[in-house]
Nucleic acid binder design. Sequence first.
DNA 1: CGGCCTCGAGTTCC
DNA 2: CTCGAGGCCG
Length: 703
Amino acid sequence: MPPIAPQRKSGLTMADPKATKRVQELRRQLEHHNYLYYVLDRPEISDAEYDRLFLELKELEARYPELGSPDSPTQRVGAEPLKQFVQVRHLQPMFSLANARNDEELRAWHLRVTKLLAEKGMDPAGAAFVSEPKIDGLAISLVYEDGRLTRGATRGNGEIGEDVTANLRTIGAIPIRLRLGRDEKPPAVVEVRGEVYLPLAAFQKLNQQRAAAGEPTFANPRNAAAGSVRQLDPRVAAGRPLSIWCYQIGFTDGLELESHWQALTWLREHGFKVNPLVKQHHDLDELTQACHDWEERRPELDYDIDGVVIKVDSFTMQQALGIVGRDPRWAIAFKFAPSTAVTRLLKIGVNVGRTGALNPFAIMEPVEVGGVTISQATLHNEEDINRKDIREGDWVLVQRAGDVIPQVVGPIIQKRTGAEKVYRMPEKCPSCGSHTVRPEGEVVVRCPNRSCPSQIVESIKHFVSKGAMDIDGVGERLVDRLFRLGMIRNMADLYYLDPEELVGLEISHSVNRNGREIPHRLQARSVGKMMDALDKSRQRPFHRVLFALGIRHVGSINARLLASRFHDIDALMAASREEVAGVEGIGPVIAEAVKEFFGEPHNRETVRRLRAAGLRFEAAAAELAGAGPLADQAFVLSGTLASLSRADAREMIEARGGKVSGSVGKGTAYLVLGENPGSKLARARELGTKILSESEFLKLMGR
DNA sequence: CGGCCTCGAGTTCC
DNA sequence: CTCGAGGCCG
């Protein structure tokens, strides 16, 4: 915002000493909290308190204009829009980096470095290295004179960049003044280099807003960051939550440092944001490991990285190694395969789920993203497609971030030809042709036809799935095939299959080199396995059978609640809506869904036949509520456990009367910690939930 | 009625 | 894992 026009009242010409002191104090406090918030990501006061301090300072500065200062926290967004950027020459050229695309090339670089050092009479065994993430953002240079930020510039061609000081000042993580110790004198000049980036979450939000406003979206976070920094109007840049990682000191006058590691430490101590995961190493194995660690960690990060930068630590050694052309020999960029890619969205397909929900998904030209080939990705629902403005025929940006699951980030508007088709959810179910409905206030479009083939097949797949009846040897493919052949029409039919009819059944085929189709037939052995698995499933506890039936809103937890309160299926079927809704955790909506399910004659028939096939429709004594040593204790599993699978752990907990839930909440009794825990750990720490290691957990289980 | 918290449903790749 | 929606508490 532009500085507020001074409203000088006559007679008030000089600020009293109290105001002067208060202004200084406020600036010091605001700078400190700014640092805690943006650089350390560890705020100590609320946003509201910060705003209060900020406002107080602004008012004082308005009242006493003579106390104003361009370095004041109120002046981060101070400048007026520019007509154009001024070109500036860097105090020291900003070099580029040679690439290593795999372990072998990294090794070759390391070998060359050690050889060269030996030739120069240095001991290569004493060489230390530093690894740091290579942020996919915008390289910039910040010049501090006498401790004050005087110039910020883009990298440009390395020699000459553009002066973007006004925009960089709006970035909270960039200090306007160096954080100095008591009596510490700032160096006359220090040039700090870093990479400005837009956090991925902010990028997505920004693109959604732009799409909604009909503005073109950014193709990726780097473009968005670069576009923001090169805004002529600093107020636009201020509205983008940009951040920075600082990684180097360029030109300096008045600073004596011996190594890169020392430089990073200096930066950290003087208020700059330096990546906390930067590490020091001593041999090639450690370096290789560091590169792989970063690649693995990549999906968890809130910023894009396209590799790891390795530098020789000692400045003396750096000098000895020198620069060839533009690339210093003492540094190299280990590059990853890109985790985002652009490809063509050929068509939007629709799946019909077991509840009748129509789920659109993107069919794309296969493209490699983060090391795997992606050809499909879910598009969630119609609103999401429209919000992102994704059209058939678009070039789209796909990414694998946050998790392993690929997502379509959005279209590349610049690549539009006009031939793209705006997407409309089908009015007829793609499986059965029924008119689809979208209940008011809901997001999903549904097929209302209960005998829709897609819904039936999907519900059978649910029935045999791991969490439900867990029938090994009957997978999705086989269910599809058996249904299409008319051998099963619902889940009960599985138990009435004739093994003799199954043997020799063609389930799929592959094409050999001569283009000839080779049929794959069910062998007697696999049919035997199937029958065994079906047999075993007859022993599954009642609550799993109830879950397997696929009643709407009745998942594994609610099935367990119902099973333990109603003991058997007859009691449940006979219960009134009110009685069902009376169960703790079950409300009117779920009760209605239960009644509706059992009100359907053909569902009752399925239950009858499953019962006749020998499935369990009553709860064993131990399954009743409140039984077991861990009665009603809630567990959450995080990460991978070394000695047992998630499902095993769950069984152990449940066998003792405990529950397993997917997220940490107030009611969670324990978090069981495995390797590579996710966000649950942080949440558990926040709530003070008891955290168990794997061995502690096993002990609790009595093993 | 609003704001948590928890559960359900659907998902990708190898 | 994420999103949407149901249930419950204040």
